[in-house]
């Protein structure tokens, strides 16, 4: 059998024919980036090829000098890189997120990056791409993870605001993607009061708004406001809830929007009082369905619960290969001890 056009290396997936890495975990001469979360998009590469939105998000997070040279990939556009063709397709994970299809005359491999199939009003929906090898994430690859309808989860938050109008509702949500999706969902549910945000979310939220996502009135929380926000919804990075920052709010309710909230022990460990099961990753049913939709002849699993997914693949006769790539985690878990400023 001929070697594959992509291979796992210590720095991440590498394409010898095009001499580039995809989502490398260390600085490389040429990188293709699926999306802007920090475990996939790092600073310091030579050349970076990514969607316009991902490049903009990297510049916001790392400064304009985050790489030496950058190139925009439009969704669906075929780009020649060395001896292969690459194309970026929507992954539905966060604004600008993409799957990357790498192909030569013999073979097509799709690197999913992180993705979800649930509706997200803040980014284009995932498109299944047929391929020979599908490289999938597996963050929530256990059959216990089945994300409920998001409107049901948002209703839990709004009903708590009704029962506890004297308490501030602090909603922990990852600053890039989850926070903006929650704002949009809260608006869809009919909440017409201002939505308050922690300062750490301001830049990214402004960027989403400049890309045409309508959040209604968003107010950055100032230190003097905090005591007055009873009955209001305040979005903040998950770590801020346990931080000194949260103290000034009136009797705060600690809410957290994450796929991990499906498992009660996980919510309890983090001191969450109002867990909302909203995830930007595919759940078990969607992982399985997506793999079938790509009609791939082989599935590789980058990170997460690879063993369970590999076991499932084996039960339907699909060859599966856990890659055990190091350096990718769930962005929410990675954010736990991050400074809240």
């Amino acid at each position: 059998m001929a070697p594959h056009i992509l291979a796992p290396t210590p720095a991440g997936l590498y394409c010898p024919a095009g001499d580039f890495h995809i989502d490398p975990t260390r600085a490389v001469p040429r990188a293709l980036i699926t999306h802007g979360h920090s475990d996939h998009a790092r600073a310091g590469h030579g050349a970076v090829l990514a969607t316009r939105e991902t490049l903009a998000i990297m510049a916001l997070r790392y400064g304009e000098a985050f790489c030496a040279e950058r190139q925009v990939a439009a969704y669906g556009e075929r780009i020649r890189v060395g001896g292969v063709d690459v194309a970026f397709h929507p992954a539905g994970h966060v604004l600008g997120s993409a799957q990357i299809c790498v192909a030569d005359a013999r073979q097509r491999i799709v690197v999913s990056g992180d993705y979800k199939r649930q509706r997200d009003p803040t980014c284009p929906a995932f498109e299944p791409i047929s391929c020979d090898v599908f490289i999938t994430e597996a963050t929530f690859a256990l059959p216990v993870f089945r994300h409920p309808d998001t409107s049901h989860e948002v209703e839990k938050l709004l009903s708590s605001c009704r029962i506890f109008p004297d308490r501030a509702h602090l909603l922990g949500a990852y600053s890039l993607g989850k926070a903006q999706r929650m704002m949009a969902l809260i608006r869809e549910a009919g909440w017409d009061r201002p939505i308050y945000i922690h300062g750490a979310m301001e830049k990214i939220t402004d960027y989403y708004a400049s890309e045409g996502v309508d959040f209604g009135e968003i107010v950055k929380v100032s230190a003097s406001d905090r005591a007055r926000l009873a009955g209001e919804i305040v979005l903040c990075p998950p770590s801020a809830i346990q931080d000194v920052w949260s103290r000034k709010f009136p009797d705060p309710v600690a809410a957290f929007a994450s796929g991990w909230m499906r498992v009660r022990a996980r919510a309890r460990q983090r001191g969450v009082e109002l867990p909302l099961i909203v995830s930007d990753h595919a759940d078990w049913d969607d992982l399985c369905a997506t793999i079938l939709e790509t009609r791939c002849g082989e599935v590789w699993v980058t990170h997460g619960e690879a063993d369970a997914l590999a076991h499932w693949a084996s039960t339907i006769g699909l060859p599966a290969r856990p890659l055990h790539l190091v350096g990718y985690g769930d962005e929410e878990e990675a954010g736990v001890e991050a400074p809240s400023a």
């Binding site: 256990l142 059959p143 089945r146 498992v263 076991h311 499932w312």
Partner: peptide, 27 residues
Amino acid sequence: RTDPVLFAMSYDYVGDLSETVALLWPH
């Protein structure tokens, strides 16, 4: 109703029988 390997992995992760069954129960 479930694959024994996937049940074992799930139970191990969730740590509570009622909760594991509630989450795993097929639609």
